[in-house]
Each structure stands twice: as C-alpha cells, then as structure tokens.
C-alpha cells in the first residue's frame, strides 16, 4: 500500500506512472498532497519529476498503444479532476495488456472515464478558441483574460500562435494565474506565471472597436426567432464575463 506524491506537472505524473508500472505492491493513491486518511501501514513516496523518464514513457506509449493514447492521457491530466491520476494509472495498466486495442475498448470501466475527461477538456479548449476576446492595450499588443474550468491554455496556444503570429499577445488564465505569452515575428510562445493587479488600461481606439462590435452584435438577432435557452446552452453564463458583446 503506497501513496505517491508528485509536483503537479505532467512530467511529474508520468514519472510516477513509469515507476508504478513495474512495482509489485498495489498503488493506493497518486496526488499532489498526502491523502487525508492514509492507512496505518501505508507508505508515502515523494517522486521527483524526471524529464527523461517522462519522455521515455510517452514514447513507449506512442509506440505500444498509439499517439492518441498519449494525447488522451495529457488531456485528461489537464482536467485537474480529483482522482484523475488513479484513473490514468488504471487506463495505462490496461494499455500495457491491450496495446493498440486500448482506445477501441470504448465502454471499458478503465477507458471510458479517461476518454470522458479528455473529451471535456478538448471541448472546452475548442469552445474557448471562439470566446477569447483580445483588447489592444498598447499599439500592437493584445491581452485576453479567461477563466476556464480546465487547464486548457497550452491546448489553445498553437491555434493562436498560427493565426496571430505577427501580433504580440497574452492569453491569461485569471483563475490559475497562468498565461500564454506570445512574441511577434516567430519568437514563439511560452506558458508563464502571471498575476495582475488591476485591469489593463485601454485606449480610445480599443473602446471604439468594442462599441462597434457591440452595435453589430445587438443588431444581429432576429426577433421572430428569439430563443435565449439555445443561446445559453451555447454561451454559458460562466464565460460571459469577458465577452465584449454580453
């Protein structure tokens, strides 16, 4: 009976998963903090993230199962759901037996929950690609705040880096104090810690575009088709805070 602790990074989790793969004794928990009720005889092992181990494991998963399995693993991890680590452990366990077939076992109790989590994360990342609202805070510098349910910034970054590669921009996960920072002219992007006090100031031109957009949006609805229930399903209230048009 062993509880494993890791540092909350994906590499850290992979290091644990590589470790328990061989281990004989049953793993009871994997987490970032010791479990509240560790059994009397349970041991707690603190695992240092090892980038090489992590890389090697991912590689092997890609070869033995499929690259899609590695992606499911990462996306489900980003959900930060309590207990996700153990789900991933069981998923992978089954994977070593089933190999390529793993992700076709759609209704298997070790597969289904992982697919579900991964799907939810991907869905949110895709949806938020539309809901990002940049404001120009300085000439040529754009800032967008978000409060996603899941840790989706890294999944969204490549899309925006491709689309706005000539723009300096920041997408800020206000809830987690993390941000993607992108530099124009092929400087690329990275994820950094970011805490803002107060909201960024914007100039008159920015206000002008925002009010144009609001005017445009308000005129779009067709009264004869009014259907706010449908609208609310599509743009949940939790996302509206940073949407210029709401």
């Amino acid at each position: 009976m062993t509880s494993y602790l890791y540092d909350g990074t994906f590499a850290g989790l992979l290091t644990v998963l590589a470790l328990v793969r061989e281990g004989g004794e049953e793993t009871t928990s994997i987490g970032t903090a010791p479990p509240a009720q560790a059994g009397l005889f349970a041991a707690t092992v603190r695992v240092e993230a090892d980038a090489e181990d992590a890389e090697r494991l991912l590689d092997e998963i890609g070869r033995r199962m499929s690259p899609a399995t590695a992606a499911h693993l990462y996306h489900a991890f980003l959900s930060e759901t309590e207990g996700a680590e153990m789900l991933l452990h069981h998923y992978l366990r089954l994977g070593w037996q089933e190999g390529r077939c793993l992700d076709s076992l759609l209704s298997h109790p070790s597969v289904l929950p992982v697919h579900r989590l991964a799907h939810r994360v991907r869905f949110e990342a895709h949806r938020l690609k539309g809901f990002v609202r940049f404001r120009e805070v300085r000439e040529g510098f754009y800032y967008a705040p978000l409060e996603p349910d899941y840790r989706v910034l890294t999944l969204m970054a490549p899309h925006f880096a491709d689309r706005f590669h000539d723009q300096d921009w920041v997408i800020h996960d206000v809830r987690r104090n993390r941000a993607i920072v992108h530099g124009a002219r092929r400087k690329g992007w990275e994820e950094v810690a970011l805490e803002l006090t107060g909201s960024p100031v914007t100039g008159g031109r920015e206000e002008w575009f925002q009010s144009l957009w609001r005017r445009y949006f308000d005129r779009l609805a067709i009264a004869e088709r009014h259907n706010p229930r449908l609208q609310q399903g599509k743009v949940p209230l939790k996302y509206r805070r940073y949407l210029v048009e709401f």
Partner: peptide, 14 residues
C-alpha cells in the same frame, strides 16, 4: 469552424 458567439436567437456568429 469556430463559433465566436451566439445571438439571442441561437445562431452562431463566426
């Protein structure tokens, strides 16, 4: 396709 918003009649704005 990416939808950026939805109008109050439930149509996608892209």
């Amino acid at each position: 396709g990416i939808c950026h918003s939805w109008t109050s009649d439930g149509r996608c704005v892209s």
